[in-house]
């Protein structure tokens, strides 16, 4: 069994709301320096920096999983993570199709959306607005991405906006999520009391949802014991099956 410190929700500078310091190269470099060895890059409805992140991961010896944070028609954020770029590319086609006819980005208002390579070189600016809901329902996002092999979790269910729990009031069993993400640092306090009745038996995850380097490093991570860094192994760990372990609420540097 191998040990991993995993963060499954990180934005690059392709997301309009993320800082330009969030290049794939910089994210992975800082991950290595801080003992984070399993990462998923998850931009809003987009995957333009994933290949650069995969390359940077190989360069520094960090496992990077291709991912995307999708906004469903109910205006909730759902994170999808895959094993391969090919799976994500197929998923991107579906999401792009379901986001046709959205207005262009206003970079002055929302922030620029930049694609770069694994060495911090500028490639292009994405002109289409990447924020905003697609036409797929939460259930369609979950079912369709899972059919392509995704690990799927509801993002920041404890936040007032874009939370699946907030939008839908509770998370029913037909939404076959692998986990729910809690962003508040007070994980232990929130954990059993408030959300348990509303989310069924879904396990918790804690990710940084980093939009800048400081939030990325200081934000919560997860401690995993798995055979290899794959969607299937992470899923086993979340279920606590076959001796795999998944512990949310892990912090690098000042762990409790």
């Amino acid at each position: 069994m191998k040990r991993f410190i995993g963060d499954f929700h990180v934005h690059t500078l392709l997301s309009p709301c993320a800082e330009v310091e969030m290049t794939p190269n910089h994210i992975v470099l800082r991950a290595v320096q801080n003992g984070i060895n399993l990462l998923a890059v998850t931009d809003h409805n987009a995957s333009g920096n994933v290949l650069a992140a995969l390359e940077a991961g190989r360069k520094y010896g960090v496992t990077v999983l291709p991912g995307m944070e999708v906004e469903c028609v109910e205006e909730a954020h759902i994170v999808t993570i895959f094993d391969t770029w090919g799976q994500l590319a197929q998923w991107q086609k579906i999401v792009t199709e379901a986001r046709k006819s959205l207005p262009p980005n206003n970079a002055n208002k929302f922030g620029g959306q930049f694609v770069v390579d694994a060495y911090d070189n500028f490639i292009c600016e994405e002109k289409k607005m990447l924020l905003g809901a697609c036409r797929l329902t939460a259930r369609e996002v979950i079912d369709k991405s899972r059919a392509l092999g995704a690990l799927v979790f509801a993002a920041h269910i404890d936040r007032p906006s874009y939370s699946l729990l907030g939008q839908l009031g509770f998370i029913g069993e037909e939404l076959t999520l692998d986990a729910v993400e809690i962003s508040n640092l007070n994980v232990s306090e929130l954990k059993e009391q408030k959300f348990r009745p509303l989310i069924g038996s879904l396990p918790y995850m804690t990710n940084s949802d980093g939009h800048n380097i400081s939030d990325f490093i200081q934000g919560p991570k997860n401690f995993l014991e798995i055979k290899e860094p794959s969607v299937e192994e992470i899923r086993l760990a979340l279920k606590g099956e076959r001796d795999r372990k998944f512990k949310p609420g892990y912090f690098v540097g000042f762990n409790r």
């Binding site: 205006e75 907030g166 939008q167």
Partner: peptide, 8 residues
């Protein structure tokens, strides 16, 4: 309202 948690 469209926020079901709020409606509840």
């Amino acid at each position: 309202s469209d926020l079901l948690s709020n409606v509840m």
